[in-house]
Design a protein around this nucleic acid. Sequence first.
RNA 1: GUGCCCGUAGCUCAGCUGGAUAGAGCGGCAGCCUUCUAAGCUGCUGGUCGCGCGUUCGAAUCGCGCCGGGCACGCCA
Length: 590
Amino acid sequence: MKREVESRLARALREVARARGITAALPTPTMERPKKPEHGDFATNVALASAKVFGQKPQEIAAALRGALEGDPHFARIDVAGPGFLNVKLSPRAFHSALAEVLAEGRTFGRARAATGERINLEFVSANPTGPLHVGHGRSAVVGDIVGRLLDAAGHRVIREYYVNDAGNQVRLLAESVIAKARGEADPEGGYGANAYVDELGAWANDHYQELIETRAIAELSRRLVAVMLSGYTPGTGIQRTLRTLGIFHDVWSSEAAVHMDGRVERALDTLRKEGWLEDREGATFFLSTKLGDDKDRVVFKSDGGHTYFASDVAYHKDKLDRGFDRLIDVWGADHHGYIPRLSNALSALGLPKERFEVILVQMVSILKNGEPYRMGKRLGNFITIDEILEEIDEATGRPGSGRDAIRYYFAARRTDAHIDIDVEIAKKQSLDNPVYYLQYGHARLCSILKKGAEECGLLEGELPVDVDALAPLTHGDELAIVQLLAEWPDTIAEAARGREAHKIVTYLTTLTQSFQSYYTRLSKENDTILPRSSARADGSWRSDPATVAKVAARLAWVRAIRDVYAAGLELLGISAPERMDRVAVEETE
RNA sequence: GUGCCCGUAGCUCAGCUGGAUAGAGCGGCAGCCUUCUAAGCUGCUGGUCGCGCGUUCGAAUCGCGCCGGGCACGCCA
């Protein structure tokens, strides 16, 4: 819709320029939806932008453009306004043909028709398998998942990957803590003993891995513990189960230990050494990251002979590129931002294209309790897990799955580079008041209208009109404005995918809901309805007037288009789209 | 101290590839259910877009400098 107007405008601009003998490069004309409806359906500032090239006042150029555009049946009206804006109002038919396009594609409208984009490896969550996921992980998980859905919709081929840090100190410490717990010994330095789940885990491990604990077989115990931390040691535990509850899945689970065992780390480091990127000093081995602009050189082998995580990360990212991806996208907590230059430098040093490596930084989530900071962190003993929050919300609403919807909404609605404060007390109180229900209600209402239309008017969804002429009865200003909004859906997806910005989908859906809900109420104030009134539905009298029949059918088709875009939007967010939501009991006021 | 992110209504946040009178939700106040779901709608209330300078026809948006908050600056992850 917008593109059609823009191409007409571009043609007009070229005409006007030619008439004046102007050969210099012209600005690309762009149309946008004005904030004020009085400014028409679309507005452009191209006359202002062209003033220099033309050596003419913006108003004069705008007037000339109007002259060139007038007479085109696509437009109902063209005005020059303010300092030289050109405001255009489209003919109803332009809207009807835009709607016909939406109807032709239904739920796939706005998605890329074929996966012709990049092969993308999207790595997200990758939390250490040493404890349950907390809210910070939850944010990365939700953001990563939705970005993955967006990239799919934009025509990329996405592999979702979880990198399991199963080879380092942390898993060893967990094993030692579990042993200490099982034998009633003191927790090791930096151990996990202070965390409540370690009590449970210790007791469980004592029953299941008694021998490993007695012989202090730390390596083997670590291996087992990683597996159970991921898959769960009792029903209701496990990182994978938490992710599943959130509606999140990974295609590939890769193991850091495997990267080592295959010799991939060794090979990558050998290559770096051969190319002169490593230096032994002070008993350790450094990667010369400063040569490429980093602040410091970075250790790959510690003086105790062990490797750093950085060493295996280099090998792991090289491996991902070797697997043939056009792009690697990692979702990281913002506290790791200083890590980007060294990794990207290391990829360069290995002769790999570092511009294919990209990181989405997700800012911190701070937990407050009654306004006071509530410390998170695995070694502090008290942190809020995703499971706890999910349970609490499900319980508060009495609707399983509402916790997932609420959490996904909460994290999806905000830009990733904004810090988030969650006050657990307020979050609990607001769980029934979450804006996610507003979106879902909008969808339920649309579904309900379609259902009634099918059941009581015999207008089945699949048989609704989809061609331009049949849509002609749609003349209400609100109806046309919403069509324009629907026509923006493909651009919204593309833009959100390009910028990896999930929140744009939320913003779009909120606007769409507001527009529809507002129309819905206004229509009844205007003594009009989408479906015939119940009495006319019951006795079939509405069928006697062909104009009414055509109008009802056109409006239902329009409702279906909105519902389809809506459902597609909720699907991108991974939020359920209920077909009905029963009216909530109003609390009695005393 | 250096680097990155943030600072917009009482609160939580959109808007930021420069455009016309800066938006939404929550809160507060006042209204709207005999009709297709009131988990909704309408109106009112509420703003030095952190501060200053600059760039230009035009700045919440771009640049520079401050101020405030967060994060990172380990042979931790």
